[in-house]
Simulated scan of single mutants.
Amino acid sequence: MRRTLEDKIVDGVNYTLLAIIFVITFYPFYYLIIISFNEGLDASLGGIYFWPREFSLVNYTTILSDPKWIMAFFVSVARTLVGTLLGVLFTCMVAYGLANKNLLFQKVYYPIFIVGMYVSGGLIPFYVVLRHLHLLNTFWVYVIPSMLNLFLLLIAISFFREIPSELEESARIDGANDLKIFYSIILPISKPILATMSLFIGVGQWNSWLDSAYYVQNENLRTLTYRMIELINTSSVPTDLQGPAVELATQAAQATPFSLEITAMVIAIVPILCVYPFLQKYFVKGATIGAVKG
């Protein structure tokens, strides 16, 4: 089709608006990156907008040379991988069972899950439950309580209900049981919902820090985001008080608490940004499942 003048004007306005939105959303993160690669003392003078004025890796070497940050990074990676794997698997298993039209008392379970989504027992009762389960101050306190995501459970139920029942019936004729059908047939054709759940659960695991603050006392089990929050909080106190930010800053004359804060943010954000492009194709399809059919 031949494009008219009105089409060109509309396209021009759209591209202009998209460019403005892109700059507004991308530049803050870009600014964090250039500050993290700039000398801390020089960055404190201001006037840096598009590229580092005094390029330096001192902020990264200062943080990454600290054993506490190295351990926190591995704890965050471990909890993200294990928590995402078990969370997706367990949530899918429950959703697959609830999606079965022959499930007894099926209508009873939904109100329970809806109430569980919006009503919480509170921090103290949850702490008591974790204590009786002997999960406090262990790695599994990051994983077990979050294995069932109620919001993603409802989306997964809608997805599994759209799968033709003929697939299960043919598998049962061949002698497959429920577990065989679930692992060999249902999961392989559920990549969109699996990718969506993996992204949501993985980001939640990576960014979580309250559980590390409330339920863990072992410094070797602290997460990367907890270290980042600790660094930000301690850098806001008077400099005559000692803290992780002050200690890190004194290790390198060219680093400041502010530049270390920015660097910690970049380190915490980059891994998630690197994973998202690989899941985007499935995420877009999986995220619309609940809107099409609830």
Rank of each mutant, 00 (worst) to 15 (best):
L98Q: 10
L136I: 08
N137P: 01
V77G: 10
L194R: 03
T223G: 03
T256C: 12
I173K: 04
F139D: 10
Y214S: 11
I33S: 04
Q242Y: 11
V10W: 14
P192C: 06
H134D: 11
E6I: 13
Y214L: 15
L179F: 08
P192M: 07
A195I: 15
W206A: 01
T80K: 09
C92Y: 06
D240I: 15
K101P: 02
T239M: 13
L89N: 08
S76K: 05
L17W: 07
V108I: 08
A99Q: 13
L194K: 00
L199K: 05
A78C: 11
F182V: 00
Y215K: 01
F139K: 09
L148R: 10
I63V: 08
A156D: 10
Q217H: 09
L210W: 14
V82D: 00
M147Y: 05
P125M: 02
F113G: 05
K180L: 10
I20W: 00
K180Q: 12
S190V: 00
Q217Y: 14
R53S: 12
L136W: 03
Y215T: 04
V88D: 01
N149M: 04
I229A: 05
N149K: 09
F73I: 10
F200E: 07
H132M: 07
Y96G: 03
G83R: 06
T80N: 07
D178P: 04
D211N: 04
I269Y: 01
P164T: 07
Q254T: 03
